[in-house]
Design a protein around this nucleic acid. Structure first.
Length: 592
RNA sequence: GCCCUUGUAGUUUAAUGGAUAAAACGACGGUCUUCGGAACCGUAGAUGGGGGUUCGAUUCCCUCCGGGGGCACCA
C-alpha cells in the first residue's frame, strides 16, 4: 500500500540537501588540499551568528589535530581549495571558521521544489508516545501554572505528531484524597447550617458559578474555617476515612462534587484548545501496584527494612532510598504511579512516555524512573520528565491560599476583554461575533506564546499586562504578520494578474529562504529536546524577518517576474507561519 | 544540615565550550505619498563577587553572596 518506498528520512528536506552539498564539497576540498580522507558530518556545520558572516559555517577546530595545523590556517587553505558551484556562491575564511554563502536562487529552487512531505509527517516509523499533562486536582479550578503545563503538553504533543509519532494525550485526575475532602467538609458544614434538607443544598447551576470555581470556593472556605476551629482538620480526616470505607453518603457527595469540578475543567480545556485521548482517575487504581512491588521484592529487587516497610535501594542511582509499601502493607503514591506507568504502556503499546510535571517533583520523578528501571521494564529508559518551573506574578509568589493565584478562566476573560477593546479600536466594520472571535484568538495567542516562548525548566514571571501587549515579541505580533501576508495574497488573487516566471536572483529574499529551509530541522530538535520554546523562537524570528522584508520590498507593485516570485515566497511563508503557530496551539487569523 | 536549581541591559527573556553576548518592553531619536503603522530603522544600556581548567568560559570546576525548590511509611 505504501506509495513511497524510500525509507530514507527527510530525503527531500531542503536544509538537508544544502548541508549535504556543503559537506560533500568540503570533503573534496580536504582531499584535494591535504590528501586525506576526512568525511564531514553534516552535524558539524553551523549557522553563523550574523548573516553577514555567511549562511553556513564549518568550525575548523576539530581538524586541527588531524591536519596538524591551526584552525585559522586550515580555514584559509580550505577557502582556496573549495570550488564554487551551482549551490555555493562563495567561500570565505574568517578566523578559525570557514563560511559558506549559498546562491539564493539555488536555495529557492530546492525549497520550492521540495515535496510537501519535507514537513516530516509520517517519515518516521510509527512509535507511540504517551504524554501526560495538566493532571489537575478536583478541588479547585485551573490556575496559571496549569496553563503553562497545558501549553507545554499540548505543543509537545503536536510536535511529536509532526515528527511522526503516534501521540496519546493523557491526563491523570487526582480525584481523591484529603484535598477534595476539605471542599466536601466545608460544603457540608455551610449548607447544613442553611438548609435542613440536603435536597435544598446549593449547586453550581443555582449559584451561576462554574463547577470548578464553586467547589474551589469551598476549598478556600475550608482554610478560613480551619483557622477559626480546630475541628475542621479532624473532620476532613474523618471524611477521608469514611470515603475509604466506601461510606455511601460520603461517596455520593464526593461523586457529585467531582462531577461539578470536572464539568468546569472541561470548559476550560475547551477554551484552551486542550483535549485528552485518555483520562486516568486516581480513585480507580490508588490501591493498585502492590503486586508489582511484591513481585519485585520476591525477585530481590527491593528490600524490607526492620519495621517491615518495602523500599528501593537507590544508592547506585545516587538518589535517596524510596519507600514503596508502608509497614502495614498499604500502598503509597509511588505504588500507584508504578502501576500507572505500566498501565499506560500496556494500554497503548507505547515505547515512550513523557510527564509534564512541575520541577518541585524533580527528585520524585527520578526516583520513580529508577524504580521502574530496577523492575526491568525495557521502556523505562524512554521515560522523560518535562520539568517546568513556577510561574510567578511580577510582585511575588503565587500560593494557593493567599488568594493571589491567577485563575486560568479569569485570566483568559481579562485578556479577551482587552483584546476585544483593541479590535474595536481598529475601527474596521465587523460584526460583534467576528470581533469576539478575533479577540478570543488573539487573547489565547498572547497567553500561549508568552508561556511557550520561555524555556520550560526555568521559573518565569508572568506579567499579565505585558502579555497582552500588541507590540513586540508576542503571539499577536506573529498573528499580525500572518494576516498581512494573507492580505497581500488576497489582493493578488483579486487582480488576477498572470504568473510570469522567469529567472530571478532572490537576493533580497535570501535570509527568509534560509529560515524557511530550517523548519523541519527546528521541529525535530524541539522533539529531541522536549522543548517547544525552540519552535516559538523560530516562528518569532521568521515573523520578524518577514516584517522587515515586506516593509522594504514591494510585492504587488513589483515588476511582473519579481511579483510572481515574491507571491510564491509569501505563500510559502504563510504556510510555515501557520504550521509553526499551530504547533504551539496558536490559531491564525486571516484578518485582524 | 544535605541535595537540586537559579543569578545576563532599568524590566522580561536568548545564547550544543567558540566568531562582535541576542531580542523584546521601557527611554530617547527617526520612517509617515502605509501592497494593513498591532509595522520598520537608529541610539544608550548587561554576564552577582573572587579564583581555576582551556587556544577560547554566560556555559565546565571550586568558593563566597543572593533567589527558588526538594530531602515523608503525604499526595
Amino acid at each position: 500500500m505504501k506509495k513511497h518506498t524510500q525509507p530514507k528520512r527527510r530525503q527531500g528536506d531542503p536544509y538537508d540537501i544544502l548541508m549535504r552539498e556543503v559537506a560533500c564539497e568540503l570533503h573534496e576540498a580536504i582531499r584535494a588540499h591535504y590528501d586525506q580522507d576526512i568525511p564531514i558530518q553534516q552535524e558539524l556545520l553551523e549557522i553563523p551568528p550574523l548573516p553577514e558572516m555567511g549562511d553556513c559555517a564549518l568550525p575548523c577546530f576539530f581538524l586541527a589535530k588531524q591536519l596538524k595545523q591551526s584552525p585559522i590556517e586550515i580555514a584559509q587553505k580550505l577557502e582556496s581549495a573549495c570550488a564554487t558551484n551551482e549551490c555555493i556562491e562563495q567561500v570565505r575564511a574568517l578566523g578559525p571558521y570557514l563560511n559558506i554563502f549559498f546562491r539564493p536562487a539555488y536555495v529557492a529552487g530546492i525549497l520550492f521544489s521540495a515535496p510537501p512531505s519535507f514537513i516530516l509527517v509520517g517519515q518516521k516509523k510509527k512509535e507511540t508516545i504517551v504524554i501526560e499533562y495538566v493532571s489537575p486536582n478536583t478541588n479547585k479550578p485551573l490556575h496559571l501554572g496549569h496553563t503553562r503545563n497545558a501549553v507545554l503538553g499540548e505543543s509537545l504533543a503536536n510536535i511529536f505528531e509532526t515528527v511522526g509519532y503516534r501521540v496519546i494525550r493523557a491526563s491523570l485526575v487526582n480525584d481523591r484524597g484529603i484535598h477534595i475532602c476539605k471542599s466536601m467538609v466545608a460544603y457540608e458544614k455551610k449548607q447544613s447550617k442553611k438548609y435542613a434538607s440536603q435536597k435544598k443544598w446549593e449547586t453550581p447551576m443555582q449559584s451561576g458559578k462554574k463547577g470548578d470555581h464553586f467547589v474551589g470556593d469551598y476549598y478556600v472556605l475550608f482554610s478560613q474555617m480551619a483557622e477559626e476551629s480546630e475541628d475542621m482538620q479532624n473532620a476532613a480526616q474523618e471524611c477521608l476515612q469514611k470515603w475509604e470505607k466506601n461510606d455511601h453518603a460520603t461517596r455520593a457527595l464526593w461523586k457529585k462534587m467531582n462531577t461539578w469540578t470536572l464539568a468546569g475543567l472541561k470548559q476550560t480545556y475547551k477554551r484552551l484548545g486542550v483535549h485528552f485521548d485518555k483520562v486516568y482517575f486516581e480513585s480507580d487504581f490508588y490501591t493498585k501496584g502492590k503486586d508489582i512491588i511484591i513481585k519485585g521484592l520476591r525477585k530481590g529487587l527491593f528490600k524490607k527494612d526492620e519495621t517491615g516497610a518495602v523500599y528501593a535501594d537507590l544508592s547506585s542511582y545516587n538518589l535517596p532510598n524510596k519507600i514503596l509499601l508502608r509497614k502495614d502493607g498499604t500502598s503509597l503514591y509511588i505504588t500507584q504511579d508504578v502501576y500507572l506507568a505500566v498501565q499506560k504502556t500496556k494500554d497503548f503499546h507505547a515505547s515512550r512516555s513523557a510527564y509534564v510535571i512541575g520541577s518541585e517533583q524533580d527528585l520524585y520523578m527520578k526516583q520513580l524512573f529508577a524504580v521502574l528501571e530496577i523492575l526491568g521494564y525495557p521502556w523505562a529508559k524512554n521515560l522523560h520528565h518535562v520539568s517546568y518551573g513556577m510561574v510567578c506574578l511580577p510582585n511575588g509568589k503565587m500560593k494557593s491560599r493567599e488568594g493571589t493565584k491567577v485563575d486560568a478562566d479569569v485570566l483568559l476573560d481579562t485578556l479577551e476583554a482587552l483584546a476585544h477593546k483593541e479590535v474595536k479600536n481598529r475601527g474596521e466594520k465587523i460584526s460583534t461575533k467576528e470581533a469576539q472571535d478575533r479577540a478570543t484568538r488573539i487573547a489565547l495567542a498572547a497567553v500561549k506564546f508568552y508561556l511557550a516562548e520561555v524555556g520550560a525548566k526555568s521559573d518565569m514571571i508572568f506579567n499579565p499586562e505585558e502579555s497582552i501587549s500588541f507590540t513586540g515579541r508576542t503571539g499577536p505580533y506573529i498573528q499580525y504578520t500572518y494576516a498581512r501576508v494573507k492580505s497581500i495574497l488576497r489582493k493578488y488573487a483579486a487582480t488576477k494578474k498572470p504568473h510570469v516566471h522567469s529567472p530571478y536572483a532572490w537576493t533580497r529574499e535570501k535570509q527568509i529562504l534560509l529560515i524557511l529551509t530550517q523548519f523541519s530541522r527546528i521541529v525535530e530538535s524541539a522533539a529531541r529536546a522536549y522543548d517547544p520554546s525552540i519552535v516559538a523562537k523560530y516562528v518569532y524570528g521568521l515573523a520578524k524577518a518577514v516584517n522587515e522584508y515586506y516593509h522594504a520590498v514591494a510585492v504587488l507593485g513589483a515588476a511582473p517576474h519579481e511579483r510572481a516570485n515574491r507571491i510564491l515566497l509569501l505563500r510559502h511563508i504563510a504556510d510555515i507561519l501557520k504550521r509553526g503557530l499551530t504547533l504551539l496551539g496558536v490559531e491564525t487569523l486571516e484578518k485582524m
